[in-house]
Amino acid sequence: MDTSLSLSKPNTKLKSVSSLRQQKLRAAMWFLAPMVTVLFCVAGWPLLRSIYFSFTDTSLTDLYGGQWVGFKNYLTWTTLSSGRTIFSGTLADPTWWNAVWNTIKFSVVSVSIETILGLMVALVLNQEFKGRGLVRAAILIPWAIPTIVSAKMWGWMLNDQFGIINHMLMALGLIDSNVAWTSNIDTAMFSVLVVDVWKTTPFMALLCLAGLQMIPRDIYEAAKIDGIHPVRVFFHVTLPLVRPALMVAVIFRMLDALRVFDLIYILTPNSKATKTMSVVSRENLIEFDKFAYGSAQSTLLFAIIAIFVCLYIWLGKLNLNGDTQR
């Protein structure tokens, strides 16, 4: 009796796995395998190699001749006979720290302005008015223009001698002599910010608009009937309700801003005031033949962004598993 019982148990367990589910799981594996493989080849492996390079003295011309050097590219110090300690490596490199501050300054300022302007534009687009579709189409234009092209366009508009911006500001009496917006140390960052805000506010506006459109209209009507001032309605009703959508958009933009490269490379080439982590890192990697050193810098940037990604995933946890359907 006992044996037959113990024999039948695993049997029923085997049976309980329906073949439909097995079929689906098997298919899912085959469907995912190519994508995961490709993704590993183009993202995972190169990332690991980059991190590896950052611990070697590999050079651009001799990719396989690098020796393991530990943290030398990040930070090392030697104590001189005089007792002075000399630090070297990326973490002791003032150019790197300048780039870090530039990146942070650029990201924080541009994303803040874009968020506020984006929300404003979204509020406008959320109204019913004639030609709304046209306006929405118009704000998509900056988004559609390649970054390089917009950098060139604005570079021309900001041109110190023949630029229309100088011309305009002169005509309005705001400046009394031409300003070299992109090459002047004091205004270079400002120029970059202007172009970035112009180019990416539409993206923010569209995401905000999608958030706004999810708010049921009757909430506004109820507020109107209660005679609540529109400004109060905005801060007490609209803002709390769009905040989740807004937060997601802000973090996306933030991640994007932290890795900015092309705009700065084209608009303000070689300006100390705007060089970001990506720009400095590529300079070392490719142009200055400090391949390993550049790898260390790109690895640091990766680490910073990884922290932000974790933040995003933590905030977006709710919709990530996305089990809206069974």
């Binding site: 183009v42 991640l255 890795r259 590529r282 990697l285």
Partner: peptide, 11 residues
């Protein structure tokens, strides 16, 4: 959301 520069060396 990878920074492209982080894989540049490996790529």
């Amino acid at each position: 959301m990878f920074p492209q520069i982080a894989v540049l060396a490996g790529l």
